[in-house]
Design a protein around this nucleic acid. Sequence first.
DNA 1: GGCAAAGTTTAGCATTGGCTAAACTATATG
DNA 2: CATATAGTTTAGCCAATGCTAAACTTTGCC
Lengths: 146, 146
Amino acid sequence: MKPARKKGQTAKLRSAAFRRIRADHQTELAGDYVELIADLIDERGAARGTDVAMRLGVANATVVKALKRLQDAGLVTQEPYRAIFLTGDGWKLAEDGRRKHKIVEGFLLALGVGAATARIDSEGIEHHVSEETLRAMARFLARNGG
Amino acid sequence: MKPARKKGQTAKLRSAAFRRIRADHQTELAGDYVELIADLIDERGAARGTDVAMRLGVANATVVKALKRLQDAGLVTQEPYRAIFLTGDGWKLAEDGRRKHKIVEGFLLALGVGAATARIDSEGIEHHVSEETLRAMARFLARNGG
DNA sequence: GGCAAAGTTTAGCATTGGCTAAACTATATG
DNA sequence: CATATAGTTTAGCCAATGCTAAACTTTGCC
C-alpha cells in the first residue's frame, strides 16, 4: 500500500464492490422474471402467473406483486386476469440475461462442472459477472470446445 | 424432453436454482459482514462500526441494525459503544468466505481478467458458487499457474 | 477537568420480497 | 347453460435492508 493513499479513499474503493452487488441484486429479480417470461412465451406461446410462480418456487401472490413493479418499470404489460407480455425493454433485458446465462453455463460445463451444478450455479453467477469477465469466459469457451 | 415427465416436476426442478439463490442471498450479507470484520481485526486489531460502514458503503445506522441480527445469529459479540468481536462461528464463516474469495479471485486473474474487475466480480460471485465449481476452479488454477 | 470531535445508538420511515387466506374471474365439462 | 375447477387478485401480515435526523457516549486535547 502506498502511504500516500488515505484511509477514506481505500474504504471508498473497497465499497465500490459492495455497492455494485447491492445494485445487481435490485435488477436481478427483474432479470429473472423477464427471462422466465420470455422462455414461457417461446415454449408455450403465453406466460401465465401460475407458471412463473411454479418455476420460481414462490407463491402466486408474490408474482402478482412483482409483476406490478415490473409493469411500473416498463418491462411487462398485463391486463387483469390475462396473460403476461414483455415490452420492448422487457425483451431486451430478457435477451441480455439469456446471453449471459448461456456463456456462463457453457463456460462452467467446459471447465468440467457437472450439468446439474452448472445449471444451478450459472443462475446465481449470471447477475454478478461484468462484461470483461464474460469476454474472458467466451474466450476460454472458444478455445476449449464450446 | 421426455414425455413421461410431468409439468409440475419440471417446474420443481427448475425452481431449485431460484430457491438456492434466495437462500444464498440471506447468508450473503452475514458473510460479507463477518469477512470484513475479520479483515479489520487482522489489519488494525479491532473492528469499529464506522470502518465497517465505510467499507460496505452503507450508513452507520444500517450497520448497527445488521450487527444486531448477526448477534442474534451468534456470529458476533458486542457491548454498547465498544468494538465488535467475532464468535467461534463467526470466525468459521469468515474463514470460509475468505477461502472461497481467494479461489474465485485467483481464478478470474488466471482466466485473464484484470485485477480491478477480478476483485469486484469475485465479491459478487463468491456467494453463488458450489463446492463443485470451486473445485473445478482450483483445478484450473493449479494447472495454470495460480 | 472540561469541551469538542468522533463514534454509536435510537427512532422513525420506505421499499422489497416473501407468505396465507379469502374473494373474484375465466374456462372447461357435463 | 350451470357449475366446478383452475387461475388471478386483494388484503393484510412479516422480516430484511436501506436511509436521515437527533440523542447519547467515548476519546483526545488543551
